[in-house]
Design a binder for these strands. Structure first.
Ligand SMILES: [Mn+2]
Ligand SMILES: [Mn+2]
Ligand SMILES: [Zn+2]
Ligand SMILES: [Zn+2]
Lengths: 121, 121
DNA sequence: AAATTAAACAGTAATAGTTCCTATTATTGG
DNA sequence: CCAATAATAGGAACTATTACTGTTTAATTT
C-alpha cells in the first residue's frame, strides 16, 4: 500500500476520537484540510485501513462506524442519544453488572459471534 | 391494527423458517400466493409485526433480517456461508463454550447492549 | 344490506449509505 | 528525472429501505 496524504489524514481523524465516527463525519473533518477530497476516497481508505488492521468497522444498526480501538471490547449503545460507549468485561451476569458499573439500563442485548461453522472443517 | 391478508401471510412466512430471512426473501415467498404484492407492503408489515412484538428485527452487518423467536437468544454468524444460527447460553467463557458445544470457531465476537445511559436518569 | 370511514394496499418515486467507473494526479523504485 | 501504476476527484450506479398517492378493502354504522 503506497503512501497517500488523504489516507494519513483519515487515519488521524479516526484515531482522534472515541465517538466511533461514521464515514460522513470523517469526510467532513478531513475536508477542512483537503477541501475537495471525495467521499469515495474516504470509504476506500477506511476499507484499506480496516483490512490492514489499523481500524475496525462496527455496524450500528444499518450504518457503518469506525473504531481505532483494536482491543477486544464491547459497546454500549444508548438508544436515546445514539452514543456508542466502549466497555470491557468478563462475560458474567452482563445486564446487572452493566447497570451497576455504568449506570446504563440495558433494554436489549445483541451478541453476534462471527466465525466459521462446522460445515467447513 | 386491522386484519390484512398480506400481513398474515408475511407473518406465516417468518414463522415458517429458522433462517432469519431478509425482506426480499419474504417478498419472494409471499409472491407465490399474492403475485402482485409490493415490497413496500412487506417492509411496512414487518415493521408493524416488529412493533407489536410478533417478530424481531436483527441486523446482520448492514442488512435487516427478521426472527420469529422472541426468546432472549444470541446468534452465531458463519462468515463462510452466511448462516445465522440461534444459540442460548449463560454468559460464561463464551468462545470456549461455543467451540465445544457448537463446533463453531469464533473469530470475532460482537456484543451490543442497547438501552439508556446515565445522561437520561 | 348499503353507506361510510379509515387502514392497508400496489405501484412508483425518493432517499441514504456505499461502491464502482474513468480520466487525471501523485508516489516511488530504478 | 522518468516510467509504471497506485490513488485520486467527481460523478454515476447500486441496494436496501422509506415515502407518497390514488385505489382497494376491512370494519363499523346506518
Ligand atoms: Mn469501540
Ligand atoms: Mn434467532
Ligand atoms: Zn444517552
Ligand atoms: Zn457455515
Amino acid at each position: 500500500m503506497r503512501y497517500s496524504h488523504q489516507r494519513e489524514l483519515i487515519k488521524q481523524v479516526v484515531y482522534s476520537t472515541n465517538s466511533h465516527p461514521t464515514a460522513d463525519w470523517i469526510y467532513d473533518q478531513v475536508k477542512s484540510s483537503v477541501p475537495n477530497i471525495s467521499l469515495g476516497t474516504v470509504y476506500r481508505n477506511l476499507k484499506q485501513l480496516n483490512n490492514e488492521g489499523y481500524i475496525r468497522t462496527i455496524y450500528d444498526g444499518s450504518i457503518a462506524r469506525y473504531d481505532w480501538n483494536m482491543d477486544s471490547h464491547y459497546h454500549l449503545k444508548c438508544n436515546t442519544c445514539g452514543d456508542l460507549i466502549d466497555f470491557q468485561l468478563p462475560n458474567d451476569d452482563l445486564k446487572k453488572t452493566v447497570k451497576r458499573k455504568f449506570d446504563f439500563k440495558v433494554l436489549d442485548v445483541e451478541i453476534t459471534l462471527i466465525g466459521k461453522c462446522n460445515k467447513h472443517n
